[in-house]
Design a protein around this nucleic acid. Structure first.
Length: 488
RNA sequence: GGCGACGUCGCCAAGUGGUAAGGCAAGGGUCUGCAAAACCCUCAUCGUGGGUUCGAUUCCCACCGUCGCCUCCA
């Protein structure tokens, strides 16, 4: 069965057929950079990272675009949050935005998230946004209000609401009093706002000095880099309305053709509140846990494993317990990988044990079937776990295992676990670098000394070596063919 | 109130119209000088009540519960 994708636009799983054979143009809504990214962001971007990785693994040529929102938007209070932050730190707004944009890339790099091919910034695409607003005005889908702001007229676009299933006549207008009552309809959304005097982030436009509305940047940048119609649009479900809905309306109204063909939205990451009730992790609620903090305690592969144990469309609740069980599960897979590589150091040449290649093929098939089913990463992970059981059985048996098979096992882990899921490191991090090599040599020296003690039945000394190494975070494992070590 | 998602073993979590993957935890074994690791065995009838069906956890309806969106948010 070929790749199936759940398309939020029609609420159904459908075969994936890109616009151009073999190529996939994809856009994912990026972060607003006014603070450090948290693990909620990690969930979304790791999820789409795996989507991109799997598409590439499947042979597609993917062009991946993800924006950086750095123009600032309005808070309830009417106070721009980037400006607020700038005032707190007495730094210029662009400096703030730069700081957090760098921080974001740093975090994503650390998580092993492959960088988008293009990371366009909203602030660098003001002309494109202005152009698009002009088109919308020309086509009668937008208007300039008495106060000089430009709004999209949602009633001019009958399909408004098709993604989020909202009908304008059913909206509870006025449930929240809008101060800016210069709109024709309360549901109309801003394309361009005239800046108040204290608003520092501002650009000149045909309608006066101001700044773009929140939604227009994605429409303008997606169009610029991916075309008027492209394949996949991703993001977090929490932005389905109004953001994604507005993107579709303004893009399709401006271009007269379909915007994104497949909409993929990732579920929200929740975190228990003080009463244990799960609530969304968000900057505004202040209940967030930054990626930087998480990485102080956990390896990036473990964070990714945690995220991938649940399907991307589902919500997940973040707790240390669940993270820990993800860690244990990941360790099991990684231990088998390390054992394979350890054996590879001195494997007999030849084809011994080649019957195992069937097992690898089976695992690969199981993995692909899961991932083809709307990127079912939990299923893919299960395939790796089942493979791991077989690998452990083989590698712990008396059976001779030749280099060819070991290399095939390693290659399978590298491809499925490494290239696609990003949870299997290329090389043991602990063994790279000059100091690490020396450490490896020192531990192996101690292992040799302990082996001599064991041969002499001097178990007191042997255990002393093992215990003291354990205190240093080094665990020894005695195997029939020798002792191996690992660091915490 | 409207829109959406979800409720599967102690915890996390896939999935299917014909009696349910995987991980963590737990219990029992094997291996080991002892450990560690690994392997083997054990461990669920799928929120509640109806309906459709030869048969439903899987389809439909109702109800209960949880979360997300309707305002800046990944």
């Amino acid at each position: 069965m070929a790749l199936q994708v759940y398309n939020v636009l029609h609420r159904e799983k459908v075969p994936f057929k890109p616009l151009h054979e073999g190529k996939v143009n994809m856009y994912v809504c990026g972060p607003t950079v006014y603070d450090h990214a948290h693990i909620g962001h990690a969930k979304t971007y790791v999820s789409f990272d795996v989507v991109v990785r799997y598409l590439r693994f499947s042979g597609y040529d993917v062009l991946y675009v993800q924006n950086i929102t750095d123009v600032g938007h309005m808070l309830d209070s009417g106070e721009d949050r980037i400006l607020k932050k700038a005032r707190q730190s007495e730094a210029g707004p662009m400096q703030i935005v730069e700081t957090y944009a760098r921080s974001y890339f740093e975090d994503m790099d650390a998580l092993g998230v492959v960088r988008p091919d293009i990371s366009p910034r909203a602030s660098g695409h003001i002309p494109e946004q202005i152009k698009m607003i002009e088109v919308l005005l020309e086509r009668g889908h937008a208007y300039v209000s008495d106060a000089g702001h430009v709004y999209f007229d949602v009633y001019s676009w009958p399909e408004y609401g098709k993604l989020s299933n909202r009908r304008l006549d059913e909206q509870q207008a006025g449930s929240r009093e809008d101060v800016r009552e210069d709109k024709r309809h309360p549901e109309d959304f801003a394309l361009w706002k005239i800046a108040e005097p204290e608003h520092i982030l501002r650009w000149t436009s045909p309608w006066g000095v101001g700044y773009p509305g929140w939604h227009i940047e994605c429409s303008a940048m997606a169009q610029k880099y991916l075309g008027e119609t492209f394949d996949i649009h991703g993001g977090g479900v929490d932005n389905i309305f109004p953001h994604n809905e507005c993107e579709i309306a303004q893009s399709e109204a401006a271009h007269g053709q379909d915007f994104a063909r497949y909409w993929m939205l990732a579920g929200t990451l929740l975190v228990p509140d003080e009463f244990g009730i799960p609530v969304k992790m968000s900057k505004s609620l202040g209940n967030f846990y930054t990626i930087k903090d998480a990485l102080k305690l956990h390896r990036p592969e473990v964070l990714r494993t945690f995220i991938l144990t649940s399907h991307y469309r589902n919500q997940i609740v973040f707790t240390e317990d669940v993270l820990e069980s993800a860690q244990k599960g990941w360790e099991r897979i990684y231990a088998a990988v390390r054992l394979t590589r350890e054996k590879l150091r001195q494997a007999p040449e030849g084809e011994a044990g080649n019957a195992f290649l069937d097992v690898l093929q089976k695992a690969r098939t199981q993995f692909v079937e899961a991932m083809d089913d709307d990127f079912n990463a939990p299923g893919g992970l299960a395939a790796l776990h089942e493979l791991t059981r077989e690998v452990n059985t083989l590698l712990n048996s008396d059976q001779e295992v030749g280099q060819a098979v070991l290399e095939a096992i390693d290659a399978t882990y590298r491809e499925l676990g490494g290239d696609v899921l990003g949870i299997v490191p290329d090389d043991d991090v602990a063994l790279s670098g000059a100091n690490a090599q020396r450490e490896d040599g020192l531990v192996r020296l101690l292992i040799d000394l302990r082996a001599e003690a064991r041969a002499d039945k001097d178990f007191a000394k042997a255990d002393q070596i093992r215990d003291r190494l354990l205190e240093l975070g080094v665990t020894l494992e005695d195997r029939p063919d020798g002792t191996i070590w690992r660091a915490e």
